[in-house]
Computed example of a mutant assay.
Amino acid sequence: MGQRKVVVSGGGTGIGRAVAEVFAADGDHVVLIGRREEPLEKAAGELDAAHGAGTASWVAADLSDPGQARRAVEFCTAGGAQVDVIVANAGGNVAPAHDGTLEGVADSFRRNFEANVLTAVLLTEGLLPHLTRPGGRIIQMSSIAALRGPGSYGGSKATVNAYTVDLAQKLGPQGITVNAVAPGFVADTEFFGDRATPEFVAARTKQSLTGQAGRPSDIAAAVHYVASPEAAYMTAQIVHVNGGASLGR
């Protein structure tokens, strides 16, 4: 398999950074997209240093904004370049609490919809005309929260699941697979911020049947397989990587 072009949103830190690493180690060219320039530049520099100059490129964009998403797509496809793999990883629980008013509830759902649904949909739809046919791979980043909440974040990830299945049905005849990877609790990321106290981490880890937290590399390995030629018969799937926590404990 020759070098592929892999676009990873949210690629500067955490799971996205680990995803970029596993593709770069395979000899692929990785395009990192995120809102913050500094982590993107740092990650791209590290990937180039580890795997050779020109391994990674980056563009800063808020993918919930159509204009910025369009600019990111233009960067990824400059000169008529094709894209082989899309990993729509940007997002997070940007509204973990609200004040209980209807205005607060609306703001919570709206913000998480923009952060998790629009960032995935606008990037994916923008890159679709440039995706390799046959053989293209689209991986959406879902979450165990789509099954277990919390509300506005879980609802946004459930929408990502629905979008994944709908897109898989449309693109299957073109030889493109569309799947989602749904992590459980993953340590060593910025996702939980100040909420990640020792007690919080211990409680989340205890939900796993294996008694351990996930690592960004665990999720990256699942994404890498789903994007591989060997996964050509796998589409419209929600791949859960959560240590069995989805069973409930």
Rank of each mutant, 00 (worst) to 15 (best):
residue 75 F to I: 03
residue 76 C to P: 01
residue 76 C to R: 00
residue 77 T to M: 01
residue 77 T to L: 00
residue 77 T to I: 01
residue 78 A to L: 03
residue 78 A to T: 06
residue 79 G to I: 02
residue 79 G to P: 02
residue 79 G to Y: 04
residue 80 G to D: 00
residue 80 G to R: 01
residue 83 V to D: 00
residue 83 V to T: 01
residue 84 D to C: 03
residue 85 V to N: 01
residue 85 V to Y: 04
residue 86 I to E: 00
residue 86 I to G: 00
residue 88 A to C: 09
residue 90 A to M: 09
residue 91 G to S: 09
residue 92 G to E: 13
residue 92 G to V: 11
residue 92 G to T: 08
residue 93 N to Q: 14
residue 93 N to W: 11
residue 95 A to S: 15
residue 96 P to G: 09
residue 96 P to M: 08
residue 96 P to Y: 12
residue 97 A to W: 14
residue 98 H to K: 06
residue 99 D to E: 06
residue 99 D to N: 12
residue 99 D to A: 13
residue 100 G to K: 06
residue 100 G to W: 05
residue 102 L to F: 14
residue 104 G to V: 08
residue 104 G to C: 09
residue 104 G to M: 13
residue 106 A to P: 10
residue 107 D to N: 12
residue 107 D to T: 15
residue 109 F to A: 11
residue 110 R to V: 11
residue 110 R to N: 13
residue 111 R to F: 03
residue 112 N to H: 05
residue 112 N to E: 07
residue 114 E to T: 04
residue 116 N to W: 01
residue 116 N to T: 08
residue 117 V to A: 12
residue 118 L to P: 04
residue 120 A to C: 14
residue 121 V to P: 00
residue 122 L to D: 02
residue 123 L to Y: 05
residue 123 L to M: 13
residue 124 T to Q: 05
residue 125 E to R: 14
residue 126 G to N: 02
residue 131 L to V: 03
residue 133 R to F: 02
residue 134 P to M: 08
residue 134 P to S: 08
residue 135 G to A: 04
residue 136 G to Y: 02
residue 137 R to G: 07
residue 137 R to C: 03
residue 138 I to A: 10
residue 139 I to A: 05
residue 139 I to N: 11
residue 142 S to H: 04
residue 142 S to K: 08
residue 142 S to F: 07
residue 143 S to L: 05
residue 144 I to D: 12
residue 144 I to F: 02
residue 145 A to E: 12
residue 145 A to C: 10
residue 147 L to W: 06
residue 148 R to A: 15
residue 151 G to C: 04
residue 151 G to A: 14
residue 152 S to C: 15
residue 154 G to N: 08
residue 155 G to P: 04
residue 155 G to H: 01
residue 155 G to I: 12
residue 156 S to T: 09
residue 157 K to N: 06
residue 158 A to K: 10
residue 158 A to I: 00
residue 158 A to W: 00
residue 159 T to H: 07
residue 160 V to E: 08
residue 160 V to R: 09
residue 162 A to M: 07
residue 163 Y to F: 15
residue 164 T to R: 08
residue 164 T to G: 06
residue 167 L to D: 08
residue 169 Q to E: 12
residue 170 K to C: 02
